[in-house]
Design a binder for these strands. Structure first.
Ligand code: MN
Ligand code: MN
Ligand code: MN
Ligand code: MN
Lengths: 218, 218
DNA sequence: ATTATTAATTAGGCATACCAAATTTAATAA
DNA sequence: TTATTAAATTTGGTATGCCTAATTAATAAT
């Protein structure tokens, strides 16, 4: 298999297996990779032979330690590049993801470590995602989705789950950026919209938006 | 065709067509691309259909204006990345080429222009090669190969034609680096070796080495 | 002009990474 | 338990980008 193909499979299996459960299904993975499930079946069989995953037919797939290690390497590269693009080159947080999708496949550990060093070994990327260290160790915080936040509580925005330009530009428009403080005024019974106060202004947020904002209880 | 394939073909056609003549043969190109001539025939036919080259069967190939423009874009990317790796990240001039071979395919003009700006819009890369500007314009100097230098003259090293680690490490060992001054003491009749003085030391240089050092007459 | 020699092309194949359509398996609901 | 639905697999293809071996074309030498 081409190295880039391997890396994209493993990275996406990794993302699916942390957010949800450890066992990843072909259908979800196909969606993430933007290919058909039939192709995923083939790909996983090869990755199994290469010892990167345990693929159990018609049941699901999980990463082997080898696979998890490589997955974390890619995640590290992606997030280091995103941080570099934002911090050193002045790209907006809505621009960095796409470029990092390409840069994450550059094969040179020294390069990533030099970039990391230059940035002061950052722990979070521009979207609030934790950056694995050289050994693949990743900081685990107990942040929550804004969609499961409770009324009357105050929170600090710590990250976003969606990295698309359109979403991030929307957040920026309302100053819903990382570090911002907000208070849940109330939750609309009808559609679960949140009425929040942020930067001294009242904003109404749809459940879909809330589901992609990660916060910490203050 | 895959974008990366297109770019590697065009870049190499470009390099062959400036160093030597404008018409590039399949055999040379196959060597550069590290593939067989039969494959080159196929590739060139496709590039012709894509209007990147004029491919004349059993005769040779040259770049169209479109093809030359893309080729120069890749050359620019390659040399900007090499300069960046050396100047900002502290990589040696013998390490940058390999990494740049991958980085040159990242598709984002803004990225290259920001890097260029950060570096102060450099005109030469770490090997002394001129960096095309955003429009593809390239500085043309009348430097010569050390192999065609004359005895008793003094020269300044301006660049190298071979980018391999082994060659560059050899040059570094003898302090034959860009900017260094040297004087041709004599040329050995038997094998065309050069006896030169550089950094107050006498060094004997083989014709092959001399052929890969670019100098300016002082 | 004929013969070597070298370069280029053709023909037939192989591996990768996809796909659509048909089928099977597993999970869910009745 | 049986029918329904959703997920996964199999089967038979396609497009790229390479390859080797055989053939043809162009160039150089005699
Ligand atoms: Mn991202
Ligand atoms: Mn990110
Ligand atoms: Mn180079
Ligand atoms: Mn260079």
């Amino acid at each position: 298999m081409r190295q880039e193909t391997i890396e994209n499979y493993l990275k996406n299996i990794y993302h699916l297996s942390i957010g949800n459960k450890a066992i990843v299904g072909n259908f979800q993975l196909a969606e993430k990779l933007n290919i058909r499930p039939a192709s995923v079946t083939e790909g996983l069989r090869k990755l199994h032979d290469l010892k990167y995953v345990i693929y159990e037919k018609s049941y699901g797939t999980r990463l082997t330690p080898i696979g998890a290690k490589l997955a974390l390497t890619i995640v590290r590269r992606h997030r280091i590049w995103e941080t570099y693009l934002a911090k050193e080159l002045g790209f907006g947080w809505d621009e960095v993801h796409e470029i990092a999708e390409e840069l994450e496949h550059i094969q040179n550990d020294k390069l990533i470590n030099k970039l990391s060093e230059l940035l002061g070994n950052p722990v979070y990327d521009p979207h609030g995602d934790p950056i694995p260290d050289e050994k693949g160790k990743i900081k685990k915080e107990n942040f929550i989705n804004l969609s499961s936040a409770k009324p009357k509580n105050s929170y600090k925005i710590r990250g976003v789950s969606d990295h698309s330009t359109v979403f991030l530009k929307y957040l920026e428009k309302h100053r819903l950026i990382i570090g911002a403080h907000l208070k849940i005024d109330s939750i609309e019974e009808f559609d679960q919209s949140l009425i929040i106060t942020c930067n001294k202004k009242e904003v109404i947020i749809s459940p879909k938006v809330a589901d992609n904002i990660i916060v910490e209880l203050l």
